[in-house]
């Protein structure tokens, strides 16, 4: 039997071959409010998966479920990495980062502002260093190779500082950095837990076009060189179109589209969610053109 595919190849939903994170039937209720309603998707290794959707669509709630800040009402979150399988919905918040190495950043940056940039990155390697210091007991007396391990931790921190271009500011307090630097530092800190998947909550928010394009390069670098999965909440459609391999669209807590950027861009569901419900009303041509431009990476300003 010969199958005739009607979908052009670039619109096929990617991954599935190497799923890193599988979300099945995730539902999150707060009292009567359903923030996420039966959402399923998967995010692959070596891919950037973008979660997009209008404000209040449940994107950050989804993140909070994945990273253990909320326990989902219903659903299963499976992370398969480094030969292990973790059921994230059953793990305590901090254990998701500790055991499954799920790293995240926050929409409103959360750095240890009274600690130095370097210390921020060292704290991220807490669990490894704790073990090396014999849970403080041997480390306190300078035994058990703690010094060596601390040096290694500093080297890893140095590596990421170089990557995010903050090496020269390593010893000043994180709170004194300008906004854009803080965003990058938070990503570097998340990378210091040696993640299997990195969840970024609006990393480009508040960045200028130049910083934003540097960020894109950084994210692609992380994806290519470190072979981890990236999960990205982003509002800036041009960023999404430019760097993501896979886009999941949420609206009112439900998934309305899932596929390659090209597929999602032409999905009528998505266009309706972004432009309103009224289908009968024809879009004024200039609005439609604007939207098309917005979704088109070539036309992005400042690149």
């Amino acid at each position: 039997m010969k199958e005739v595919s009607t979908t052009p190849p670039e619109l096929v939903i990617p991954s599935g071959a190497d799923p890193l994170l599988t979300v099945e039937h995730l539902t999150m209720r707060f009292g009567g409010l359903v923030a996420i309603d039966d959402v399923s998707f998967s995010a692959g290794k070596g891919e950037i998966t973008a979660i997009i959707g209008p404000n209040g669509a449940g994107k950050t709630t989804l993140f909070n479920c994945i990273t253990g800040f909320y326990t989902p009402t219903v659903g299963r979150l499976t992370l398969t990495a480094r030969g292990e399988e973790y059921l994230l919905e059953r793990m305590d918040g901090f254990r998701i980062a500790q055991k499954a190495h799920v790293a995240r950043t926050f929409q409103n940056i959360r750095l240890f502002s009274e600690m130095s940039v370097l210390e921020n990155l060292i704290v991220a390697q807490h669990n490894e260093l704790m073990r090396a210091s014999g849970f403080t007991v041997t480390g306190l007396f300078g035994l058990g190779g703690y010094r060596k391990k601390e040096k290694e931790a500093a080297d890893l921190a140095r590596y990421w500082l170089d990557k995010v271009n903050l090496t020269h500011l390593a010893d000043i307090n994180a709170g004194n950095l300008p906004y854009g630097d803080q965003r990058r530092l938070e990503i570097a800190r998340a990378m210091c837990i040696k993640p299997t998947i990195l969840c970024l909550d609006e990393p480009a928010a508040g960045l200028n076009p130049k910083e934003s394009s540097e960020l894109n390069k950084l994210l692609i670098y992380i994806k290519d060189e470190h072979d981890i999965g990236l999960l990205l909440i982003e509002h800036d459609m041009s960023v999404v179109m430019e760097i993501s391999d896979h886009v999941v669209v949420l609206d009112y807590g439900s998934k309305i589209s899932d596929g390659t950027p090209l597929y999602v861009r032409s999905d009528p569901n998505v266009i309706r969610a972004y432009l309103g419900e009224d289908e009968d009303e024809a879009l004024p041509p200039e609005v439609a053109a604007d939207i098309a431009k917005d979704f088109d990476p070539e036309n992005r300003e400042g690149v």
Binding site: F94, F112, M115, I122, V123, N127
Partner: peptide, 21 residues
Amino acid sequence: PIGRAWEALREDEIACRSLGI
């Protein structure tokens, strides 16, 4: 590490949890 974790907790507990502390 424990001392640094104390100070980090003082600064931001949520961030600490996200780092596996």
